[in-house]
């Protein structure tokens, strides 16, 4: 599903003395089937932005279209229908867990949206395996799990719905390193096999580089930049100025150029390339 923001403003506690404008005149396009990463400093408006994607909040000004759905301050009729297509994993997993058992929690969405429950139950073992949980968690309370285990349950409860748009708000926070890389591979696999549109909010620049077709950079409630990750991460100074950074491989490549005086070209800006540059450097030294 194509997603378009047109001149969107959002204000928390609108029309009260505490009102706070979190989004200013946002306009951008996310093509159907693309993998988009959203990065930005703490409080830049990322979570506010993505809450518009399933109608949890509506623009105060402007318009958001998601496939055939339109959200604006006036129109908001088919929110439940929209949520069937757009699955959101929230920043804090506790916000989406509420049932007595993990099983009920994961099946809550399918039940709510009228899916074939028997079929979904049969899929449970697979879903759990995908998110790296053992089947014996099914009968446990989601509130008696560790932080990373809760995160995995929250993700399971959304991917089981096979949404056309999967929205992930820092989905790997709290996962152990192996779980983190497995989860990212899972998202990438689902993205391709289900032809889904994926929106990933992240503080890990290397994930944006590895998986995204397009990166939206937020700064103080506005879109600061938008573009392909490789191009975007060349703007080191500008990113630093707004609280961000460049991926570690790029930083390492820069450091090598400055310290060793050898050049690292663009296609070498990965682990293999860098290692080759270093090997050549050492061998050249040994000869001279």
């Amino acid at each position: 599903m194509d997603i378009t923001f047109k001149e969107v403003d959002y204000i928390y506690q609108y029309n009260t003395p505490f009102e706070h404008q979190a989004l200013h005149n946002l306009s951008f396009h996310i093509p159907s089937g693309s993998f988009t990463a959203i990065i930005g400093h703490t409080g830049s408006g990322k979570s506010t932005l993505i809450q518009h994607l399933n109608g949890l909040i509506k623009p105060i000004q402007g318009e958001v279209t998601i496939g055939e759905f339109t959200l604006s301050s006036e129109k908001n009729h088919q929110v439940k229908d929209l949520r069937k297509h757009v699955g959101v994993v929230f920043q804090y997993p506790e916000h989406q867990l509420f049932e007595e058992t993990v099983k009920k929690d994961i099946l809550f969405g399918p039940k709510n949206f009228g899916f074939d429950l028997d079929r979904k139950e049969d899929e449970l073992a697979d879903v759990l395996n995908n998110v790296g949980l053992p089947v014996d968690v099914l009968d446990r309370s989601p509130f008696e799990l560790s932080g990373g285990q809760m995160r995995r349950v929250a993700i399971a409860g959304v991917i089981v719905l096979e949404p056309s748009v999967l929205v992930l708000d820092e989905p790997t926070a709290g996962l152990d390193p192996l779980g983190r890389s497995q989860m990212l591979k899972l998202f990438s696999h689902l993205h391709q096999s289900r032809q889904q549109t994926t929106v990933l909010v992240t503080h890990h620049m290397e994930d944006a580089l590895a998986y995204a077709d397009q990166v939206i950079v937020m700064n103080q409630g506005k879109v600061e930049m938008i573009g392909e990750p490789k191009e975007l991460f060349k703007k080191k100074e500008r990113l630093r100025d707004i609280g961000l950074d460049i991926p570690e491989v790029f930083e390492c490549a820069n450091y090598i150029e400055n310290k060793l005086g050898v050049s690292v070209n663009e296609c070498q800006s990965n682990m293999e390339g860098i290692s080759q540059v270093l090997v050549d450097f050492v061998k050249a030294g040994a000869r001279s």
Partner: peptide, 30 residues
């Protein structure tokens, strides 16, 4: 990264903690 270098027979005196240490040591070696 260090693992890859080791497979090319490049070893450092101590296990590096970050890429700066690794590159700095290669510089000294050089």
């Amino acid at each position: 990264l260090y693992h890859q270098l080791k497979s090319e027979n490049i070893t450092l005196e101590r296990e590096p903690l970050d890429f700066k240490e690794l590159v700095d040591e290669l510089w000294t070696l050089h």
